[in-house]
Design a protein around this nucleic acid. Structure first.
Lengths: 183, 183
DNA sequence: ATTCCCATGTAATTAGTTACATGATTCG
DNA sequence: CGAATCATGTAACTAATTACATGGGAAT
């Protein structure tokens, strides 16, 4: 149940409306934690009940009014407490891996196509991360301390995409030569 | 909703009881798809209704009777159809990454401890995979075609653990020198 | 004596997804 | 004129987790 904490982290960085949060969960923090706007509104309401956040109505002209959510003292306490908790290993659920494992019961060419797609997705995500890195973290040795977390997570993203990409290439290579040796 | 398909893959490899499946989902296939026994029994019942699997009661002495589940022709059709489907990118949910990103709002030492733990987990999982690889896939070039899927998935696991391990080491290194330069 | 293995479930709850709903404004 | 952006939600459903339940046999 860590969507709460992902929201706390995001609001601790900067107050936001539910809508803003939904967009953040499509980009920055969303690269390692996905959430829909429906889920965000639901959880925000619960968090307001727990006094972890408070809403301030912002009246706007020309566009709908919005609620700006800010983290409270209690929210900060909870966030701090949570960082001292052990993080359980995430439950892996890779449909892609299941499909590769089960390829011998299915359509081999379709699975190979799927691997090529996955490879391309890794490539473009890697490019995106590398651009982000070049833009925002060109000199990681002289980084202000408060940016360390964001930098390190981005490093993890880069490594993960690189590895995913290399894995796909290895698979395509292997399956390609296996196909050739069949002839 | 791919637990169904993970079960189909597992049963296509070899028939099993719900209990057997639960143990497989703790080991081999469970390395990339986690499921509890409760969830497995529930889904098996649904799959029996859909005629993807059929149960045969096996009476035993000295231990409880069990139901042996086998994949049906319809189950094999569904499995084949599923391999031709596009695989949506998995929704990332890394509580660990959220915690690293939010470390500046919490207890830095506790987070660093958490990274060390994670590093150790990656190390032991990597060792486990490498042992598996040495034992079962010592000569990947001359592998029977039906083992290709299992081999490639294991390669992915090895790469993922290696990368996770290196990421943790990079973070510890970075945070360590950042701590030193604070003095 | 206690705990682990075998074996299969139900019940209650929480988390997440998908579909539906509304309505003004701005951009092409 | 249609689509996208801003903004907030409800309702129905599916998937998954946690807790509870049973009971014999084997091992420590």
């Amino acid at each position: 149940m860590a969507l709460e904490h992902a929201i706390l982290v995001s609001l601790a960085e900067k107050s936001a409306s539910g809508y803003d949060l939904a967009r953040r969960f499509d980009k920055s923090i969303g690269h390692f934690w996905k959430a829909s706007h429906q889920q965000i509104y639901k959880v925000l309401a619960r968090m307001e009940g727990e006094k972890w956040v408070e809403a301030h109505l912002v009246e706007q002209t020309g566009r709908p009014d919005k609620k700006d959510y800010a983290i409270t003292g209690e929210g900060r306490d909870e966030l701090r407490r949570w960082t001292t908790e052990a993080t359980p290993p995430e439950a892996l659920r890779s449909e892609f891996a299941v499909k590769v494992r089960g390829m011998r019961f299915g359509d081999r060419d379709a699975v190979v196509d799927g691997i090529r797609n996955r490879r391309d997705e890794h490539r473009s995500k890697l490019d995106y991360y590398l651009a982000d890195s070049a833009k925002n973290f060109s000199e990681p040795t002289s980084l202000p301390a408060e940016l360390a977390g964001a930098y390190l997570v981005l490093r993890g993203g880069i490594r993960a995409e690189q590895t995913g990409l290399e894995w796909c290439e290895e698979m395509l290579n292997y399956l390609d030569s296996a196909a050739r040796s069949d002839r």
